[in-house]
Design a protein around this nucleic acid. Sequence first.
DNA 1: CGAGGAATTGAGATACATCAACTTGCGTGG
DNA 2: CCACGCAAGTTGATGTATCTCAATTCCTCG
Lengths: 220, 220
Amino acid sequence: MRDHSIFAGLSLDDLSTLNIQVRDITVPAGHTLYLEGDHARHAYTLRHGAVKLVKTLADGRSQIVRLLGHGDLLGFAGMVETQYPYTAISLTETQLCQLNLADLIAAALRLPHIYQAISQRWFTALRQAENRIVELGAKKAEERLATFLCQWCNTYPTNSDVPFPLTRQDMGEFLGLSTEHVSRMMAAFKRHHLITEHKNLLHIPDREKLIHHACTTGAC
Amino acid sequence: MRDHSIFAGLSLDDLSTLNIQVRDITVPAGHTLYLEGDHARHAYTLRHGAVKLVKTLADGRSQIVRLLGHGDLLGFAGMVETQYPYTAISLTETQLCQLNLADLIAAALRLPHIYQAISQRWFTALRQAENRIVELGAKKAEERLATFLCQWCNTYPTNSDVPFPLTRQDMGEFLGLSTEHVSRMMAAFKRHHLITEHKNLLHIPDREKLIHHACTTGAC
DNA sequence: CGAGGAATTGAGATACATCAACTTGCGTGG
DNA sequence: CCACGCAAGTTGATGTATCTCAATTCCTCG
């Protein structure tokens, strides 16, 4: 894990002198790690599992801002702001590494490597967020769903069945669609043998075909 | 300008030893600064005017990813990637400061201040992008338009008439709506005296009222 | 086996897009 | 200076993608 983490490139000596209070934790599915608006005390690196970052509007509508998986960071906004901007909820049983934010900030001041690694992540997160703006703003529902499913599968090296812990509601909140509409489109994809789903395992036989179908039946 | 720029906090000595090739340029409205996919040679800081960053899909649909104004940065992705990710087009006559990217990268290696300042901008851009994800994913057209207009006006200190150089098509491409629908909603807002518009000058008498109207007539 | 949340399916409503006609504004050239 | 022409804006009629509400079925877990 160390080579992909924000501590990559640091010597063991450096690591031992960091003095960051660290705790490995495991939480069940559906666990709320922190709430939007909470005072930020911890940052986390995600070892195993999946987490959603959710923003809930005053009237109850909610939007999944980001989905996190193996190796992703969360809560690091606490290095810049005092409050967590979104609510973080685990989608599966999840193992995380919990870092004390105050210690982390102190360490980052001494070792610019750390700050640079985190900045790098912010940049890639920005690029992904902008991608999502294009998806949400310019594409139709079928296209959004199809590209989302493909991207989800791309995060797994294997091209066979991949874990898929999202509910239809989660997908809807991620894609800006109603759960019913997501359900219908998933059924349609299955009917056309573009995807299969068994017990939270998703499989896409031919991603090209899925994308192509979504683009042609829709309006492009 | 220096105090808000990425070179803020540097001594004059530092600045003089940077050796970054810099050029002040002025471009007319509608000028393409660079194209998505172009090899990134320059970064820009925006002195005066407005610029849109556009992503165009294969079939011609296009989405405005970000709108930039006084003090914003563009093209700095070239510090991480070799190609510009989006097309940059000026909305008004615009004055920019053009920086040679290779020089800038070299300078940033020597002076971490610069890199940190840019990272900071990436972080705020990320936060804004995530806000837009919520807007596009969870809100209805009227709400999106209303909050967009308010946010646009908020970037100007004065609360009277503010310059508004966007066409209805621009607004549509920013908000993920058709130009006709934007036009209709703008007309409706005017009919209800929630906004006024004369010759590219926009005025919102009461922002609270505008937002409230958009929320109640819509569905929240 | 029973209960409760998730998923599915259907029917109907609606928000928004699309297409097309028309107007307005404005720079350009005769 | 007027007439032309084009791009942006407006408006209307119609189509459709997506939402909403409601009923039913399917899993999963205790």
